[in-house]
Amino acid sequence: MTSSDNNSVNFPAILASSVHDIKNSLATVRELIMQIAAKQQSSKSPDFMQLEFETNRMNNSLIQLLELYKIDSDKFNLDIDEYSACEILQEVKAQQIPLLQLNKISLTIDCDDELFCFCDYNHICNALGSILNNAQRYTHTKVQLSAYKEQAYSVFCMEDDGTGYPEHLLAINTTDTLSINTISGSTGLGLHFVATIAALHATKETKGFIKIDNESSLGGARFRLFLP
């Protein structure tokens, strides 16, 4: 538990509660935008698309900030059970589908129905969702989601046909959550968040991690999440 002196202010706690308020307000803003767009029958106009995309990104960042605050102040634990990997990928797709359609990005899923993995469903879906959200900014036309077993790990893989991760990102050791901190902006926050959530998925022997490279089968960036 983070504590502070009686006369000093617990700034992280204030920040967290403000973030929570902002997130609630943002939810209302998003609803109002959608309703206005529907009234004006202009929900397909580029401005509204942009609004939808940006507010979604803001929402993702706020969620990540809140979760990281909880992890930091020991107000967090995973709720692990066994889930179908396909279900997770379908959920991630459902989360992002309005934006994918707006951006005219085609998304394919490649996963064996019989593949199951141990994880915290909500957190893994959110983490992958934020990576997918980011990928949409950089990919050209396609994203592929897949899941498979590799040795003792369940692997969730996301590939796109964009220009790939820039050199300075590839240079970072993604199994070390601290070094991800040096990446600025929402890409950094997103990767830091996923790496943190991955590492919390730990067994006695090993723990989860992420890897990024440009070995995408579609020619762009490849992101992989390894869970024990």
Partner: peptide
């Protein structure tokens, strides 16, 4: 958890 879209709700 909010927010969710129609597809998520449907699933």
């Amino acid at each position: 958890a909010k927010p969710f879209n129609a597809q998520q709700l449907s699933r």
